[in-house]
Design a protein around this nucleic acid. Structure first.
Lengths: 333, 333
DNA sequence: TTGAAAGCGCTAACAA
DNA sequence: TTGTTAGCGCTTTCAA
């Protein structure tokens, strides 16, 4: 056999030095209850003296547990995910686990490919803003521990930030400012959340007697803002609801370039309250949610839950609130 | 033995089905050259048919290679690191490896603890903005594959963004605007880059006949900005160089609150050109560097290099350039 | 070019 | 409570 990293202290060294069997060492270190307190103390001392550290790979092989969690985000470039990444990293670390991070680049194939590749290396997957179809996700959830962020599917544990009530807050706010026509600048076609947002906007706008139009889709990035701004300007709505803050910020810049005054000429609202939303110009009115918390809870759910399917899966909905800033104002005309 | 995840197809299944030995299957899949082309083709077909996927853990045990790279950042909350994380993730993925992400929360102990914990689980470590001492890092580099970002130590491979020339650009820019007194709003005491920046500022300022003062340290975050802004205002310098953009943006906000006009009353410069630096108010003049590239190169170095120590370690210095925006202007008085 | 077999470091059933 | 022992799934030497 190749002796590749052969220099590390192993459980055999500790066992020999302590005068016990390897299984006893294993137990002393992992199952404190199943071994004599004295023996245990002795073993621990020896292990310390020898600089012993459990080899996580060797432990994972027989046990099948790697103490590792994978998080996939659909676009690592989007600051929106930073909160989620942060929260997931914190919680994973707090649980003594390790976080693996992957970017799936808006591609459902990369999502499933990554899962395939990491199967066996991780104890479970957290997928934020999955672009896979409901069927694909359900099927994967059958074979793997899996929790979702910003996506809900029956039978699969998930954490989302409330979009219905949040969207109601947006529309209510705009209505109170006298707006009667809003445009939704849509996000990616495969985005579940984009579909939900539009549904909620349309339904709520109707309740408030407002007209609502969907324009796009646009790339949910700052660079998508120019086209989105032009589109909404051409459409004539007095209020624009962007799919996310990135797009909203891009629109703000385009409006500034074109001499369109925000919020005098047009009001702009975003979703997510990302870093920068409070200091762009003008500061952006946006729907804020606790995304770090979402990351934390998704990891909790993953580590706590048994394989989904049997019992009804937990679906967590976090509250959202509208951060009203200077990008929204009274309707003109 | 416990048969925990016993349902997956193994190399034994493939060997049996293909009528060959497991070693042949192993070779066919990993060492294409060392096996008959026909046999190989057959084995691959069988493997595919059986839905076989190599178990990465089982492969890692005898080989000692996990195909995994760990990246530690000193504060996952700081958008500055997002570029680095992105670049590292991309390059890791491109190399068919997996990225593990860790936050060390500005703590040298958490850094070394994390390394200890992950030893055996990863093939190497990339540490961005390490807070450990030179000695600690050198010692770790002796025993592990390790590359540094934003830190240089003899004998350890590293990638940094040029700070000397960059700082020269800043000072030159301020001098050309007629400033004769600058203040550096310092970053964390343990930060190598903070020390370097101050050295470069002081040296270059002297060349340009400017006075330079160091104030702080301040938390390198937006919340540190208020104290920093007040400090520089009290000091009387006409130009402020913040340790990073986060701090600079915080200062901008404080100045706005206090009615201090930027750049009329005071010029503000940052480092890093983070997301938001171009749309804060006023847009920030800042030293831009290719941090995604730094992340990519650090991973390259890690995967390409043999254990450091013997040959002279590679030290990459990426160029930087000053993004001049509206936060700097002619000196008053 | 292929197969047999040992072993990577650990866990856990079983027996003592 | 402890030891013996058989694996976990794979790689790699060695011999054929």
């Amino acid at each position: 056999m190749a002796r590749v990293a052969g220099n590390r202290t192993t459980i055999y060294d500790v066992a020999r030095e302590a005068g016990v069997a390897t299984s006893t060492v294993s137990r002393a270190l992992a199952n404190p209850g199943r071994v004599n307190a004295h023996t245990r103390q002795h073993i621990i001392e020896v292990a310390e003296r020898l600089g012993y550290h459990t080899n996580p790979i060797a432990r994972a092989l027989p046990s099948g547990r790697t103490q590792t969690v994978a998080l996939f985000v659909s676009d690592i470039t989007n600051p929106h995910f930073f909160g989620i990444i942060r929260g997931a990293e914190q919680q994973t670390r707090a649980a003594g686990r390790t976080l693996i991070l992957g970017d799936t680049e808006e591609s459902p194939d990369l999502e499933s490919g990554n899962i395939e590749r990491l199967t066996g290396s991780v104890d479970g997957f957290v997928i934020a803003a999955s672009r896979m179809s409901d069927e694909e996700i359900r099927e994967l959830a059958d074979r793997h521990r899996l929790t979702l962020i910003s996506r809900q599917i029956d039978g699969v544990p998930s954490v989302i930030v409330d979009h219905e009530d949040g969207t109601r807050q947006i529309i209510e706010h705009l209505a109170s400012l006298g707006h009667t026509s809003v445009a939704y600048l849509a996000g990616p076609r495969r985005s579940w959340i984009a579909a939900k947002r539009w549904q909620a906007i349309r339904a709520t706008a109707r309740q408030f007697g407002m007209r609502a139009a969907r324009l796009g889709p646009f790339p949910p990035a700052v660079r998508g803002g120019a086209a989105a701004a032009d589109a909404v300007f051409g459409h004539g709505a007095t209020a624009a609801i962007a799919h996310n803050d990135l797009l909203a910020i891009g629109m703000l810049r385009r409006f500034a370039d074109r001499g369109v005054r925000v919020p005098k000429d047009i009001s702009v609202v975003g979703y997510d309250d990302i870093f920068g939303a409070d200091f762009c110009s003008p500061p952006l009115t946006t729907l804020a949610g606790q995304f770090e918390e979402a990351g934390r809870l998704a990891v909790d759910l993953l580590l706590g839950a048994r394989r989904s399917g049997s019992a009804r899966a937990t679906e967590i909905v976090l509250p959202s609130h509208l951060a009203i800033r200077q990008s929204t104002g009274p309707a003109q005309r």
